[in-house]
């Protein structure tokens, strides 16, 4: 069965642009060797690594999407693992093909007003018994949940830090 996959790999930043380009070609050669059809190619650029990998603190991330006969995946992965230029790589199934960008991020707003209402109620019980706060109030809060999540994280970190140490 043909599946759609996504490959992300990491190349050491000590390499020159040219060498990275070579690696890119080499990986593509491996992919085509297993008769995969590459549908997307994207260099994510040089990034700082979250932890040093083989003494590298920075690396180039390269992304590829491709269709592949799933039976051939094991062999392909083996070959990728054996190539020394790749510090890390990961192949995952990709369910919706990335045709253009931003396909997934469309439906956002609809659920919000009600939930904001729920957010407001606890500290002001009197309002809670009323069916609805004013429309203006709702609009002011529209950007809130996201901020609150960060606030919350920070505060809880503060609280918990005391506990752990």
């Amino acid at each position: 069965m043909t599946q759609h996959y996504e490959l992300l790999y990491l190349v050491a930043a000590t390499m020159t642009e040219e060498e990275v380009h070579k690696v890119r070609e080499q990986v593509k050669r491996i992919l085509t060797k297993y008769e995969s059809k590459i549908t997307l190619e994207e260099s994510q650029g040089k990034k700082r690594l979250a932890y040093p990998v083989d003494k590298n603190h920075q690396g180039y991330y390269e992304l590829l999407e491709f269709d592949l006969e799933s039976a051939k995946l094991v062999e392909l992965e083996r070959e990728l693992r054996l190539s020394n230029e790749l510090l890390r790589h990961i192949v995952v199934k990709k369910t919706p093909k990335t045709a253009g960008k931003g396909l997934l991020k469309v439906t956002r707003v609809s659920a919000k007003p009600d939930l904001d209402l729920a957010n407001q109620t606890p500290m002001t019980p009197k309002i809670a018994s009323k069916p609805q706060p004013t429309a203006v109030e709702k609009k002011d809060d529209s950007s809130k949940p996201r901020l609150k999540l960060e606030d919350l994280d920070e505060k809880l970190d503060e609280i918990l830090e005391g506990d752990i140490m």
């Binding site: 729920a118 957010n119 606890p122 609150k148 606030d151 505060k155």
Partner: peptide, 11 residues
């Protein structure tokens, strides 16, 4: 705000 965080049922 802090009260909010402790009591609010979140989603």
């Amino acid at each position: 705000n802090s009260n909010d965080i402790l009591t609010k049922p979140k989603v």
